[in-house]
Design a protein around this nucleic acid. Structure first.
Length: 598
RNA sequence: GGGCGCGUAGCCUAGCUUGGAUAGGGCAUCGGGUUCCUAACCCGGGGGUCGAGGGUUCAAAUCCCUCCGCGCCCGCCA
């Protein structure tokens, strides 16, 4: 294979180009000229039942005023085959192309083995993107509803980077709202002075979080009771309101930020077990401190549809924005002069647009209206850009309803992790008696995390999810552990070969088994899968890909001997090495640990 | 009431943005497979009005309309 037919970034590309070029010529001859881009968009790259790539000829036939089946036949005859595309055959209204198997195998294995950990990754360029995700209030432990945001957001950032868009992840820490302030309010009093209902609620029983000593669990403990208590008690409410005013004036109560920081630390510890980390933490109060809220407020007073209410509050008359607010107005500044969340969010997003060429916010569906409101305010401000929103639906409990911190219906991330790791540990112990304790623990931790991440990311974000333990803890079939297991299997084969570290010489002609060719086709598709997933933000496609590759690898593994084979041995080892590499790269994009053994 | 989202076998789900050939998977179920590179695996069977109806089209799970069911939101909360 020479340089013109090898594309290390996307080994399928030369084949697609050959088909497009051939079709362009053939279409010109048959009276239905069509541009390369149009041809490419009509190609079915997955192929059909009778080929590797298919071209439905209906539309071109209409242009040529011919019967589709006759036209497809003429097209196929006019198509010049070559070293990459071996045949073009009409079937009905379709032209089916067969790629040269040795050429595809050769190009694909070369690309995977040469690029190694970068296979599937595209050239990096373009402006920096921001991916803001999770941003849960620092008021207590994560429940798994919130974790959906984190897993989707983290995966998206990884996929964007692989597709060539440099990305920074941002966690917006809301230290200014009522929620965080309630925590400060209660912990500013010694527990002996807590209101009776809060004291009894906290003393009354566990909230289900298994790690009571973690700061998020400990300091977040009174939160639900405080929240309930404030609803009944106007005087306490006023105390909290006073604290909020102090925070807004830049003189927050002692320990306010430290408490938030400590709780956040506990929360992040849990996310780290899922291999989720953030590049930046943006504290909401910073936009107050640095004067940007003030500046935004100033300018918003002169916005095209700014109105001042009788009591002094400021709002945007949103009639033209088609928002469902009953008042028809978006209030952005209270009568007492303090700012509202959405206004501070404007300040945050202006800061984002100043630094990033692309801004993505991962939000729960309950924030949809907030997103539209933010867009409207940005427009009023004079900012032409708006964020791209990746919106996911809530995770509900089988009894119905959202996961609630109150009412005990929440499933905590720490709890889920503990269960998943415990089950994984049992599974390891059941089949591996040879491993030292520490190794068992390490594998169990990785499998538990892998199961959780895969379970969440495999479903399209816009789909509602009902949490069921038996589903979340599944280690079989379409699951994280299945993919991890397949990777471990491939690793094991290589470990037992004499060429574990490579290089992996191969003869493509010797990889002619149907299972081998099927495997190569899937390997060749990886770069395109990554690119498409980034473009559409369909992170679930990566989970689907990883499963499909693992699945086909297992079929191959059963059907074709590797280490015990004869002349094919070296080539098959190279194929296994390529599978292991690609599977590993896919696992990296999913944030799921690779395991050499399990 | 209004706005937005979702509806694919008993259960879960891909495909829908850009319409194309017999709608892919997984769980469960039934029947097989381990002197052989990790059985967290593999092979095979059964199971589908793609919520309902209408429309557009040579062609609809995919686009448009209506309806039904479920969810979320409609705060001087965040």
């Amino acid at each position: 294979m020479d340089d013109t037919t090898l594309d290390r970034f996307d080994p399928a590309e030369p084949f697609v180009q050959a088909i497009v070029a051939g079709l362009e010529a053939a279409l010109g001859q048959t009276g239905a000229p069509l541009g390369a881009e149009a041809i490419r968009s009509q190609l079915d790259l997955e192929g059909g039942p009778d080929g590797d790539v298919a071209f439905p000829a209906h539309r071109a036939a209409a242009t040529a005023k011919s019967r589709p089946d006759e036209f497809a036949d003429r097209l196929a005859r006019a198509f010049s085959t070559g070293p990459l595309v071996r045949s073009a055959a009409a079937k009905g209204a379709y032209v089916n192309f067969r790629l040269d198997p040795a050429a595809l195998t050769s190009g694909t294995l070369s690309a995977v083995l040469e690029r190694g950990p970068d296979y599937g990754h595209h050239p990096t360029g373009g402006p920096l993107a921001s991916v803001e995700h999770t941003s849960a209030n620092p008021t207590g432990p994560f429940h798994i509803g919130r974790v959906r945001n984190a897993i989707i957001g983290d995966t998206l950032a990884r996929v964007l980077r692989a597709a060539g868009t440099p990305a920074t992840t941002q966690y917006y820490v809301d230290d200014m709202g009522r929620q965080a302030t309630m925590i400060t309010w209660i912990w500013s009093k010694p527990p002996a002075e807590w209101p009776e209902p809060v004291r009894t609620a906290v003393a009354g029983g566990s909230d289900g979080a298994p790690t009571e000593d973690k700061p998020d669990a400990r300091f977040g403990r009174p939160y639900p009771a405080v929240s309930a208590y404030l609803k009944e008690n106007a005087a306490a409410r006023e105390e909290v309101a006073e604290l909020i005013r102090q925070i807004e004036l830049g003189t927050p109560p002692a320990r306010h930020r430290e408490l938030a920081q400590e709780i956040l630390g506990g929360m992040l510890e849990s996310l780290a077990r899922l291999h989720i980390r953030f590049d930046e933490f943006v504290w909401e109060s910073d936009f107050l401190r640095d004067g940007s809220v003030e500046r935004v407020l100033e300018r918003m007073h002169h916005a095209p549809h700014a109105v001042r209410e009788e009591n002094g509050a400021w709002a945007i008359d949103a009639a033209g924005y088609g928002l469902p607010q009953e008042s028809g107005k978006i209030v952005f500044q209270r009568a007492d002069g303090t700012s509202l969340y959405v206004l501070r969010d404007v300040a945050f997003h202006l800061a984002k647009f100043a630094r990033f060429g692309r801004v993505v916010d991962v939000l729960g569906q309950d924030h949809r209206l907030h997103a539209r409101t933010l867009d409207a305010l940005l427009h009023e401000y004079g900012e032409a850009r708006t964020p791209t929103y990746l919106i996911y639906q809530d995770i509900t409990v089988p009894e119905g309803g959202r996961m609630s911190t109150r009412g005990g219906s929440a499933v905590w991330l720490d709890q889920l992790l503990a269960e998943a790791v415990a089950r994984a540990r049992q599974e390891v112990l059941a089949r591996r008696e040879d491993l030292p304790e520490s190794e068992v623990d390490r594998i169990a931790e990785a499998v538990g995390a892998g199961a959780i991440r895969f379970h969440i990311v495999r479903v399209a974000p816009e789909k509602p999810v009902v949490f069921r333990w038996e589903d979340a803890l599944s280690f079989e079939g379409r699951s994280g552990p299945f993919v991890q297991y397949s990777y471990a299997r491939a690793s094991s084969v290589l470990r037992k070969s004499d060429v574990e570290a490579g290089p992996f010489p191969f003869d493509a002609a010797r990889l002619a088994d149907v299972e081998e060719l099927a495997l190569v086709r899937i390997l060749a598709r990886f770069p395109r899968t990554v690119r498409d997933a980034a473009r559409t933000m369909h992170v679930q496609a990566l989970a689907g890909y990883a499963h499909e590759l693992a699945d086909q690898f297992n079929r191959f593994y059963h059907a074709v001997p590797v280490l015990r084979s004869g002349d094919e041995r070296a080539s098959r080892i190279a194929l296994v090495a390529a599978v292991r590499q690609t599977l590993g790269n896919a696992l990296d994009l999913l944030g799921i640990p690779r395991l050499e053994t399990m």
